[in-house]
Amino acid sequence: MNYKANIMEFCKRLGLDTIGFTRLRRFDELQEFLESRRQNGLQNEFEIEDIESRINPMLYMEEGKTIISIAFPYLFSKEINGDIYFSKYTRGEDYHKVVSMYLRRICEYIENIGGRAKYFVDSNALPERYIANLCGIGFLGKNNMIITKKYGSYVFLGEIITDLFIEEDSPIECECNECNLCMRACPTKCINEGKTNPNICLSYITQKKHIEDEWFDKINGRIFGCDTCQDLCPFNRYAELSNINEFKPFEYMESINEDEIVNLNNKAFKEKYASTSSGWRGKNILTRNTMIQLMKNGRYKGPISFSSPYIEDYYCRLLKHFKL
């Protein structure tokens, strides 16, 4: 049986057309790089610290033979509406749930043709962008994102480990060449060739529970995430839109109700924002980041009572910072 052709055909029937394969092995070539990042303080709180779990995929399936990487395009619109906005990847259904649903179906198919399979989405130790490059999904750009030929960098990644032997694909060399648009445009200059610092990436800053006052001016309308390096990337100029309906943006994620978010209660949060990939950090993060922009623009004076001491603390800090 031609496992590779059959799996690719099954994925295409699901609407997934960017799939690649690589041999399951230790990625010892990453150890020095990961050690250097740790020693230079370039890891952040969302990363798994144990390097062995990042370079040894056999820990997840000892008898595994192949890793499958699949790209899930999520872009439905390139527009930014207003001066307060959510990053494009957060505007539809939470990708953890959506990607898991698709990968589960692919694993079931693999098991039906005689293999074993286990899937992974984001919150695991696998070096997914490195694996995606090995699988020929795309090249690793200077902005440290996988850039695919068809969808640019507007993709989520999912992996499957299987015990089937499948012919592997070839990695793609970086095609950024002399282009440095992402490095020049990054608001915090976190992107540097060979030494990108995720701890000062605005996408990370908007998700932190506690941020320093120095970031209040830099957040600049970002409620959750940052798209700056992607929006300016030439490879995204002609990126095709997604056909995965689950990622279609919710109306309230594109037409922002500032008053609702800045006074967000549990009911509205659970009914709306909790179902997106911005919901995992809780409602206070969304309220805080919206409040920063409104106070920066002089459009927010504060409620009669605060939803939490956390929000009240940021309100007082923002009053002082913006001299209101």
Rank of each mutant, 00 (worst) to 15 (best):
L75E: 00
P309Y: 12
R25Q: 11
D259C: 00
S242A: 12
L164I: 10
A117C: 14
E111P: 08
T22P: 00
G64P: 13
T18K: 07
A71G: 06
E175R: 15
C226G: 08
D83H: 02
S308K: 07
M61L: 10
Q230H: 09
R288P: 11
R23F: 00
C174I: 15
D213S: 11
Y74I: 03
E45Y: 06
E251S: 05
K208I: 00
T22R: 02
S307I: 01
N266C: 01
Y60E: 13
F235G: 00
I70N: 06
D122M: 14
M101E: 12
I68P: 10
R184W: 03
K65F: 07
C107H: 10
S123V: 15
R116T: 05
Y119N: 13
K142P: 13
D213E: 15
L75Q: 05
Y204Q: 02
N81G: 01
K323I: 09
F33Y: 15
T188I: 07
I68G: 05
C233V: 11
C135H: 12
I67F: 08
P127T: 10
C11T: 14
K248Q: 08
E63H: 05
F156N: 11
E49H: 02
L202S: 03
F156C: 07
I137M: 07
E9N: 13
F139K: 13
C316E: 15
I67C: 03
E254Q: 03
